[in-house]
Simulated scan of single mutants.
Amino acid sequence: MSDAAVLSGLLSRERLLVAPGVYDGLSAAVAARAGVEAAYVSGAAVSAAEGLPDIGLTTVTEIARAIAVTHRQLDVPVIADADTGFGDETNTFRTVRTYEDAGAAAVQLEDQVFPKRCGHLDDKALIPAGEFVLKIRAALAARRRGTLIVARTDAIAVEGFDAAIARAKAYAAAGADVLFVEAPQTLDQVAAIPSAVGAPVIFNVVPGGKSPEVSREQLEGFGYAGAILPGATVGAAFTAMTQALSDIAGGGLPAGQVAGPRALFEAVGLTEWAVRRAPKEPARA
């Protein structure tokens, strides 16, 4: 069964699918060891790992490389953030093909203008809904392996909640497999989205973002098919690095709380690689 078919099944069940964000080989390896059912290659996380803010500066090539690297570590479907498709519908077609070749089971597109901004920052702008429908159709035409197309709208912050629902319904009618209404501002909005859209919907869990805190049980009860956690690994890494380097700057040195070399390398396959190395014959006198 293809990764896309597996992902479709996971999103069709009653239990919420939770896909933590990954952005490189190490974060994907840790996610694999944790037993995740799916993973989310976050454009924001890849941007941060490149030393850039999430304001449309990363390229299709950079994120496709992150998809390929993470996909090698994971035996589960990968949902991949494609921002605005990196241009018009022609660019969107190429993006879907590129992401498929890298191993994505689902490609997420959004209706912001290019270059975009993080969905939980201010001052976003949208393209017309009809223009985004053309991108969805281009994405559907591009896919060759049943890849799911996730259509995201950022309209709540720009046009209001009702307009966001209208856009999401139009995108579903255009053929998007999964819908994503970004940054609902109240718990009532979070609760209303799945039934209002009438199609599979995912929720973006962003602690400290524009949306209220919500539990897995609440999301399941509201009818969400899945939840993505873009900052699950990159946010934890940033917090841990900040603390470690603060301790060092304060005069300390890393102690037992830091993973040793063997534990780190075991996480990325030391044992599996070691058994592939042929034993050396002893040198003859």
Rank of each mutant, 00 (worst) to 15 (best):
A68D: 14
A68E: 15
A68G: 10
A68P: 08
A68F: 12
V69Y: 14
V69H: 10
V69C: 11
V69G: 09
V69F: 14
T70R: 01
T70K: 05
T70I: 06
H71S: 14
H71N: 14
R72Q: 14
R72K: 12
R72I: 04
R72E: 15
R72M: 05
R72F: 05
Q73A: 15
L74N: 08
L74C: 08
L74Y: 07
D75Y: 09
D75N: 13
D75T: 11
V76G: 09
P77L: 11
V78T: 10
V78A: 06
V78Q: 03
V78W: 03
I79T: 05
I79G: 00
I79Y: 06
A80Y: 04
A80E: 07
A80D: 07
D81F: 04
D81Q: 04
D81H: 03
A82S: 04
A82G: 03
D83A: 04
D83W: 04
T84S: 07
T84L: 04
G85V: 10
G85S: 12
G85F: 06
G85I: 08
F86G: 01
F86W: 08
F86D: 01
F86L: 05
F86S: 02
G87P: 12
G87F: 13
G87D: 14
G87K: 10
G87C: 13
D88C: 11
D88E: 15
D88F: 13
E89A: 15
E89V: 08
E89T: 09
E89P: 06
T90L: 14
T90N: 11
T90W: 12
N91W: 02
T92Q: 11
T92L: 10
T92H: 08
F93Y: 15
F93R: 13
F93N: 07
F93S: 09
R94W: 15
R94S: 12
R94Q: 12
T95H: 02
T95C: 05
T95N: 02
T95K: 00
V96D: 03
R97S: 05
T98V: 14
T98D: 04
T98S: 08
T98R: 03
T98E: 03
T98M: 10
Y99F: 15
Y99T: 02
Y99Q: 02
Y99G: 01
Y99L: 08
E100I: 04
E100G: 06
E100F: 01
E100Y: 02
E100Q: 07
E100N: 02
D101H: 07
D101S: 10
D101V: 07
A102W: 03
G103C: 12
G103Y: 09
G103S: 11
G103V: 10
A104E: 15
A105I: 07
A105C: 10
A105T: 06
